[in-house]
Amino acid sequence: MAKILIIEDEIGISNFLTQGLEEEGYTIEVANDGLLGLELALQQKNDLILLDWMLPKMSGIEVCQKIREKNYQIPILFLTAKDTIQETIEGFQAGANDYIKKPFSFDELLERIKVHFRNISANKIVTLGNLVIDTAKHIVTCDDVIVALTQREYELLLYLVNNKGRVCTRTEIIEKVWNIHFDYDTGVIDVFMNSIRKKLNINKDNDIVKTIRGVGYIANDI
Score class of each variant (00 low, 15 high):
Ala2Val: 04
Ala2Ser: 09
Lys3Val: 09
Ile4Tyr: 01
Ile4Gly: 00
Ile4Lys: 00
Glu8Lys: 02
Glu8His: 06
Asp9Glu: 14
Asp9Thr: 09
Gly12Val: 08
Ile13Val: 15
Ile13Trp: 05
Ser14Asn: 06
Asn15Arg: 15
Asn15Val: 12
Phe16Asp: 11
Leu17Pro: 01
Gln19Tyr: 13
Gly20Ile: 02
Gly20Ala: 14
Glu22Val: 10
Glu22Pro: 07
Tyr26Met: 09
Thr27Met: 14
Thr27Lys: 14
Ile28Tyr: 04
Ala31Glu: 03
Asn32Ile: 15
Asn32Ala: 15
Asp33Pro: 04
Asp33Asn: 15
Leu35Phe: 13
Glu39Pro: 09
Leu40His: 12
Leu40Gln: 12
Ala41Tyr: 01
Gln43Ala: 13
Gln43His: 12
Gln44Ser: 12
Lys45Val: 04
Asp47Glu: 12
Leu48Met: 03
Ile49Met: 01
Leu50Pro: 04
Leu51Pro: 02
Asp52Gln: 09
Asp52Gly: 07
Asp52Phe: 06
Asp52Ser: 11
Pro56Leu: 11
Pro56Met: 12
Lys57Ala: 11
Lys57Ser: 09
Ser59Pro: 06
Gly60His: 02
Lys66Arg: 14
Lys66Cys: 11
Ile67Leu: 08
Glu69His: 07
Lys70Gly: 08
Gln73Thr: 12
Pro75Thr: 03
Pro75Leu: 00
Leu77Asp: 00
Phe78Tyr: 12
Leu79Arg: 01
Thr80Gln: 06
Ala81Phe: 09
Ile85Asn: 14
Glu87Asp: 13
Glu90Lys: 13
Glu90Ser: 14
Gly91Tyr: 02
Gln93Asp: 13
Asp98Ile: 10
Asp98Asn: 10
Lys101Leu: 14
Lys102Arg: 10
Pro103Gly: 01
Pro103Trp: 04
Asp107Gly: 04
Glu111Ala: 07
Ile113Glu: 00
Ile113Leu: 02
Ser121Lys: 11
Ala122Tyr: 08
Ala122Arg: 11
Asn123Met: 13
Thr127Lys: 12
Gly129Val: 03
Asn130Asp: 13
Val132Arg: 13
Val132Tyr: 13
Thr135Asp: 06
Ile139Thr: 07
Val140Cys: 05
Val140Ile: 05
Thr141Asp: 11
Asp144Gln: 13
Ile146Lys: 12
Ile146Val: 15
Val147Cys: 05
Leu149Arg: 03
Thr150Leu: 08
Thr150Arg: 09
Glu153Arg: 08
Tyr154Arg: 01
Glu155Ile: 04
Glu155Arg: 05
Leu156Arg: 00
Leu157Gly: 13
Leu158Val: 03
Leu160Lys: 08
Leu160Thr: 07
Asn163Glu: 10
Asn163Ser: 06
Lys164Asn: 03
Lys164Val: 00
Arg166Lys: 11
Val167Asn: 05
Val167Ile: 09
Cys168Ser: 05
Ile173His: 04
Glu175Ser: 07
Trp178Phe: 15
Trp178Lys: 01
Phe182Pro: 05
Tyr184Trp: 14
Ile189His: 02
Asp190Ala: 14
Ser195Pro: 02
Arg197Asp: 12
Lys198Asn: 13
Lys199Thr: 03
Lys204Ala: 05
Asp205Ile: 06
Asp205Pro: 01
Asp207Ile: 15
Asp207Phe: 10
Val209Trp: 00
Thr211Cys: 04
Ile212Thr: 11
Ile212Glu: 12
Ile212His: 01
Gly214Ala: 06
Val215Phe: 08
Ile218Pro: 02
Ile218Asp: 04
Asn220Glu: 11
Asp221Gly: 08
